[in-house]
Design a protein around this nucleic acid. Structure first.
Length: 105
DNA sequence: AGCATGACGGAGG
DNA sequence: TCCTCCGCCATGC
């Protein structure tokens, strides 16, 4: 199984109304440095893969028209996305802590 | 087989 | 605290 297949599998496990960063997905794959490849794998997104639930570390959606579509889909699931294309960190999968005080970026 | 690229992340200045 | 540079790894040429 190619690595991107695993990415698709993991992304498919992301519950609706929730988002995950590339780094998080990469970490789930076993290598946090494979974040780039994660985005790359999503580039070949399948119909069954909720690629829009994956954003970067800052919570910003993908560039281009795809970003607009992503914002639309996320909002449809109840995720708060600013018009600038930034997803609220509160909608991230696990990070409960470390977001109350410092939490730069 | 090697070089260049990329929907990212983290460290450094 | 904000901006810039380097690094990792799979895929394409």
């Amino acid at each position: 199984m190619s690595f991107y297949k695993r990415v698709h599998q993991i992304v498919s496990c992301i519950p609706a109304g929730t988002v995950l960063s590339y780094g998080q997905v990469a970490r789930l794959l076993g290598n946090p440095n494979m974040a780039r490849q994660v985005g790359w794998a999503l580039r070949a997104c399948e119909e069954s893969v909720p690629w829009y639930r994956v954003v970067n570390r800052m919570g910003s959606v993908m560039p281009g028209a795809s970003g607009k579509l992503q914002i639309r889909l996320l909002r449809s699931e109840g995720v708060a996305v600013s018009d600038e294309g930034f997803v609220d960190k509160s909608f991230f999968f696990l990070p409960h802590s470390a977001q109350t005080k410092g939490e730069s970026q």
